[in-house]
Nucleic acid binder design. Structure first.
Length: 218
DNA sequence: TGCCAGGCCGGGT
DNA sequence: ACCCGGCATGGC
């Protein structure tokens, strides 16, 4: 496929997925802080496990920066057990919250009001926040147009030869950033639709099946 | 029963 | 600059 085809291809894929699944209404969280907690907890973990952890935190009234800041690591880990990797994720949550209090007066809006580039840079400087988690926060909590790339994105779009199979994060991201108009609403929906598709048709590292809206591949 | 899930880090080449 | 092991629960 030629490089100039990418914009049309990306639009075509989007249309097919939107037609099949409709609007996804992401992020599945009510507040920016909940989005951020979810973004960290869902690292290499199914969302259903994360939901339980978030439900716990809500029931214990711990889902605020201040309350979480006051918790010890072991205690916090106990509340997020179901999300897996709970020790390391407790640390990562604390790392984020510590930064919030050290540099932003514990005020999330103070952090999120930075411009997209500065926000992303600061998030990446926090231990435990990598490119996907950072972009998820920038897009779904701050609502800036940064495209989020995940394992499904790589699988689906490399299988359709829009990117190389061994493409790295930034390389995949640039496929979307360079060929779509930067729009947070569209990027929001597109990534959500990719995840929706991947969950059902990309399982077990197998090729897309024939029921997939993107058609048979391989 | 085993494999996988909306990654990331640290240590080693 | 990559490559790899470790991190851990719950669902199918």
């Amino acid at each position: 496929m030629k490089k100039g085809d990418a914009p049309e291809k990306l639009k075509e894929f989007y249309k097919a997925l939107f037609k099949a699944f409709g609007p996804q209404g992401w992020w599945p969280g009510e507040t920016p802080f909940e989005v951020i907690v979810g973004a960290i907890l869902t690292q290499n973990t199914s969302w259903s496990n994360v939901e339980k952890a978030i439900r716990n935190l809500k029931e214990e009234k711990l889902l605020t920066p201040r309350r979480m800041h006051a918790l010890g690591l072991k205690e916090l880990a106990g509340h997020i057990r179901s999300s897996g990797y709970f020790n390391i994720k407790a640390k990562r949550l604390k790392n984020f919250i510590d930064r919030l209090f050290d540099n932003h007066n514990g005020n999330l809006n103070n952090l999120l009001k930075k411009n997209a580039g500065e926000l992303r840079k600061e998030l990446l400087s926090i231990n435990g926040i990598g490119p996907e988690t950072a972009d998820s926060i920038v897009l779904y909590a701050a609502e800036y147009p940064e495209f989020v790339v995940d394992a499904y994105t790589k699988r689906i779009f490399s299988r359709h030869n829009l990117i190389r199979h061994d493409a790295g994060y930034e390389e995949v991201k640039s496929l979307f950033m360079d060929n779509l108009k930067p729009d947070a609403v569209t990027f929001n929906e597109y990534h959500a639709l990719i995840v929706r598709t991947g969950k059902h048709f990309c399982k077990n590292k197998k090729p897309l099946c024939e029921e997939c809206p993107l058609g048979v591949y391989f």
